[in-house]
Design a protein around this nucleic acid. Structure first.
Lengths: 190, 190
DNA sequence: GTCTATAAAAGGATAGAC
DNA sequence: GTCTATCCTTTTATAGAC
């Protein structure tokens, strides 16, 4: 909490702004305003916008992978853990802190940032696939279903934001979970 | 094909650029360069960037809804039509022309553009839900599953772009369809 | 309807003092 | 390490002639 404080505040402000409006749309000046840090400090700690973006995006993906591990490495059956991941409460209207970066061309045109985003999603899919394989699903089917699970979450965010309705995200998850784990109400009941 | 040609070329160029890099990140100058139209013409036809964006986004959503109708209103059983929609070949690495706008704050902060995007996704979900209801699914379950289907497509785009791998999108669709329509290889077979 | 010229503001830094 | 001042470029138009 001495002098490196400015650095941390810059990264936190950048994470917040990147989430709200994307990397390309965020100016150094905005980061200064939100962080309360002075201009000289910014360019001392991060010579270019890219340097700041790399630090902020890395912090965000690391936190996201941690959260996924907490859902998927926990106790319970394979399906239970996947459902826990799918139904975790999420800020549907704000969007996914990492997912939103994928349509930000400023991110995907930057090799370092694009690699960070790729590693995040590769980690997520691998984690989900491992859980499903445990469940006795053949490798190919497990990978397909893992991709579907991650896609449901990302697509749920897109739908919720597009429709301006958080329930759109939970509906998508429910629709998927119902297929995953045919419980009380089977289609045949109708 | 007389003088309104400039207008059409401006809209086409804007659609192309918005798809590739978003609305916020696209400048009027880029639209001029791609369309080959002069600056005076742009501001004659579209006094502000918003006016151009409204025209271009509307053209894009209209085309997208048309395509969805072609898949979902066609012949075949309900599941067949839904699978046709889910498995239609898509430009996975380029992303969804409408879906990508959802994380573009310049779009979502503009009431007209946001409404256009909302109407597109509402139309998509309603269409899918109608198909599933036909199939005998109760209304609530049909809506949930319709949200899931649209989310799979949008999430598939996100995954494919993030992983820089078009197969990620088809994997997500396969994973979902396998649950929807448990065919030859049932989980129990293992 | 289209052209060229101009301009006010924001973006992304750099310079040099402290 | 941090501050203020400055700079060049791009954005988003506007002005006025043709």
């Amino acid at each position: 909490m001495t002098t490196t404080d400015a650095r941390e505040r810059l990264v936190a402000a950048a994470q917040e702004l990147f989430w709200a409006q994307g990397v390309g749309a965020t100016s150094p000046r905005q980061v200064l305003a939100v962080s309360g840090v002075g201009q000289g400090s910014l360019y001392h700690h991060f010579p270019t916008k890219h340097d700041l973006a790399a630090a902020a995006v890395h912090a965000t993906t690391a936190a996201g992978l941690d959260a996924a591990h907490r859902d998927l490495d926990a106790s319970g059956s394979a399906v239970e853990r996947l459902v826990r991941y799918l139904e975790r409460p999420r800020p549907a209207l704000a969007g996914c802190k990492v997912g939103r970066l994928v349509s930000d061309q400023a991110v995907m045109d930057d090799d370092v940032l694009a690699a960070e985003v790729r590693a995040y999603f590769r980690g997520l899919v691998d984690l989900a696939a491992a859980v499903l394989t445990e469940d006795g699903l053949p490798d190919d089917a497990a990978r397909d279903r893992a991709h579907a699970a991650v896609a449901i979450v990302q697509g749920g965010y897109v739908l919720a934001r597009a429709l301006d309705d958080p329930d759109a995200m939970t509906a998508a998850a429910r629709g998927f979970v119902a297929l995953l784990d045919p419980g009380p109400t089977t289609p045949e009941d109708a």
